[in-house]
Every structure is written in C-alpha cells, then in structure tokens.
Design a protein around this nucleic acid. Structure first.
Lengths: 235, 235
DNA sequence: ATATAAGGTCAATCCCGTTGGCATAAGGTG
DNA sequence: CACCTTATGCCAACGGGATTGACCTTATAT
C-alpha cells in the first residue's frame, strides 16, 4: 500500500489501470467532481470513485493520503477555477467584486463538492494564489496594511462561508428534491400571526427572498465599507 | 424497528434501558453533544451514542428518524441556547448585536456539533423563534418590511455561515491539534516575496489576525449599513 | 538486458447506518 | 388486582464505508 504519497511533480512511471485509464491527480479530481454531481455530496466514496476511474479503490491512496486529502484537493480545484475565470482591470472595486462573485460562482457550480470543502482552509497553492490576489487589490487601492488585512479577512471568510451555506441549500434541493423554497411556503407561511406576528406579516417577502443567496448583498456592504475607508485615509 | 418515530410530546411508556437510564430527546441530544466534544465532529456514531447512553444503537431510531434527523435536533438545541442566553433591551442595535453574538457564541461553544449542523436550515421550532425575534427587532426599529427582510436574510445567513466556518477551524484545531494558527506561521510566512509580495509584506499581520473570527467585523459592518437605512427613510 | 521500485491489484479488517424480528414491561381497562 | 395492548427496548444481520498489508507487473535508468 501507500506508505507515502508521491507528489504529482515527481511522478514518472505511469501505468494504466485495469480499465485502461492512466491516472493523475487532475483526472482523479475531475472524476470526483463528476461523481459528486451524480451521487450527491455524500456519494463520493473510494469504491465509487475507483469504479468511475476503472481502478481499484486502493489505488487512490497512491495519489492522496485519504479521502480527506482528496477533498482538500477538490476545494483547491474550485478555487483555481475561480481565479482562472477572473481578470483584473485595475479598478479595485470592480476587481474585488468580480473576484468575490467568481469564487461564489465557482463553488455554486459544484454544490455537492462545495458542501464537502468550502468550510475548510486548504493551504494549497491555488488558494494561496487567491489570497495573494485579494491582498494585492486592497493594497494596490491604497489601503494601509492593517486595514487591508482586516478587509481581506472579512472578504475571504465571508465568500467561503456563504459559498458553503448556499451550496448546502442548493445541493439539498438537488439531492432530496425537497427544495427548501417549499419550506418557506409550507412551514413559515403557515405560522399563526398570534405566535409569530413578524414572520406572518412578512411571509410573502420571505418566500420571495429566502431562496436566493444573501451573498451579493453582503458583498456590496463590504465594498461600501471599504470605499469609506479609502475616502478618509485617517480612519 | 422503528416504523415511525413517536413525537416527544406523545410519549408515555418510558422504559429504562439496560444501562438504567430513561431516555428522552433531550437526554439524547445532550449526550450527543458530549460525545461530539469528546470524539470530534465525525465521531458521533449510532453505536457510540448508544454506548454513551447505555442503550442499543437501534433504540435511537425510536426517537429520531436517522442520524440526520438527530443532527437537525442538535442544531436546534444550539439555536435554542443562543436565544435563551439573550435578553432584549429595546434598542435595536444593541439587541441585534447581542443576538448575533449569542448565536455565534452558542455554536462556537460546541464546534464539533456546529460543523455538523450550522450549514443547514432545520425549520425546527427554536430556529423559527430566532427568526421571529430578528424580524421583530428590525421591524420594531422602523425599517420598512422589504428592507427588514433583506437585512434579516443577510444577518441570519451571515451568522450561520460564519459560525460554520469558524467552528470548522476550531474543531480542526481541537481534533488534529494541528492548529491552523501554526499554518499562518509555517506555510504563509515562508512564501518568497518574489512570487507572493503581498502576503510576504503582511505576513505578521496575517498571523495575528487570521486565527480570530472575522464575524465581529462583518457584524458591525452590517449594523452600520442598517443604521444608514434608518437615518434616511427613503432609501 | 537487466534490476529496481513505482504504481497497480487483491483480500481482509474493522466500523458505519439501518432494519426485521422479538421480548418485555408500562399503563389503561374491567 | 389481573389482563391486554403496544410502545419501547434489545439482538442479530446486511450491505457498504475507509483503510491497509502483501503481492504482482511493468516503466524506466543503468
């Protein structure tokens, strides 16, 4: 078995699996994303992924230290895709908004994968690249380092946290077909006005708003806050 | 086995388990919190919980439809504790700040449980009570319903999302003892300035800030935004 | 050509959630 | 107080999970 995983860069002898495919971290991660989409966020198992690759499950342990390590690689892939889909314009506000949306969108494009990975910091290369980009935007805009770090922290955590939450409800809707949208009509809309006057009074608005992500709103609020800091350099 | 779970209120014939304990939803949830704390977020298993209760694992299915249902009950318990620890003063800003912190703190008090539950909406009674309270604060402050709903949405999602994220790193630190704080020193502080100039320049600030939650900052930004809406009623 | 060992496979281990069948005692009824 | 019903506990078993140790095979370096 795998006493230690050989790093991707050092790999030399690639041998085809019984199924004929030649493995690589990239192929495994891509296949894992497909399996996740097809079988849901809890449906990624070593056996199933092995089958999808035409390989023995234990082969995965030649590439990743365990399913946990694989999950981190999947998260990094999503982060990388976000960064790839993003281009800088030089205007900090435009760039930060675009990057935030790219991250959020990249995770929501694979909700089942996002549920698995979005709430953990991976420390992998592409995540680090995103961190570098964010800090670059903020410092380039002229924010003093302490403020830049504070905003960076709120920005990245907010983006990841919302991605995880929103992916959760998306994945749930896909998997269980239940659709929480239903719940805002079924459960919340039926609460009696005596016990829950405020929910009752706003039930129609809730049903309209809750199925959508609050991330865009939170992002704009953060951008506004940042702009305020730039207009009064002393703060 | 359990064809259907008997609702807690309708329970009559309580029989002691082989271990002598008399079960109830409350006892099970409380024990589950203890097991989670002791064995980590993935350490809550039917067998282990059964052992902790002095009961057969299958007995749990007389109380909950499955481990998933149990997880939702645990989440609702945390939400209930948040609400219990909170008292309204009548000042919207004070009250909303306190409630947000109470929710965040309640989840972080049980990080392993929070990881399991914070990223899902349960639709259970105590969660609904919190929703009602938030809407009450905002509407009581004089916000028009559409704005109140928008702020409510951002507030509750932000609180839960950060709770999940922050609990993740807390639980990780507890479980693996790795301490991500370490990572901000070990991984990030060693990046060469040529490839990652912005991280390198702010490494000391990052190491100081990143181990703490960004939730308080994000909460204040949201409160500020809300206050702005109240001072110009037309917006 | 040959030797080395990377990287594949196989089989086994232990744990998981969940369920069907069964036993028993709690509580209602006379 | 005795009896009946059935809620609620226990047992045993099933299929599937991650992971690992031993083994085999073939790609590459010499």
């Amino acid at each position: 078995m795998a006493k230690q995983v050989v790093p991707e860069a050092a790999r030399q002898r690639r041998r085809p699996t019984r199924g004929g495919t030649v493995l690589s971290e990239e192929i495994i991660v891509r296949t894992a994303l497909r399996v996740l989409r097809e079988h849901g966020s809890t449906g990624l198992t070593a056996r199933r992924l092995g089958a999808a690759l035409g390989a023995d499950p234990s082969t995965l342990y030649r590439y990743f230290a365990g399913m946990d390590d694989l999950a981190r690689a999947i998260g990094d892939e999503l982060m990388g895709r976000a960064l790839d889909s993003w281009t800088a314009t030089g205007d900090w506000r435009t760039d930060l908004r675009a990057l935030g949306r790219a991250i959020h969108a990249s995770y929501l494009a694979h909700p089942q994968a996002a549920v698995l990975t979005a709430s953990r910091v991976t420390g992998r290369p592409r995540e680090i690249a995103v961190d570098e980009a964010i800090l670059g935007i903020l410092r380039g805009a002229g924010l003093p380092d302490p403020v830049a770090v504070r905003v960076y922290h709120a920005f990245i955590d907010q983006s990841l946290a919302f991605a995880a939450l929103d992916a959760g409800s998306l994945a749930l809707a896909d998997e269980a077909r239940a659709g929480d949208e239903e719940m805002w009509h079924s459960t919340y809309a039926r609460l009696p006005a005596e016990s829950h006057p405020n929910i009752a009074a706003t039930a129609h608005l809730l049903a309209r708003h809750m199925p959508h992500s609050a991330y865009p709103v939170a992002l704009e609020i953060l951008l506004e806050h940042t702009a305020a800091h730039l207009s009064r350099p002393g703060a």
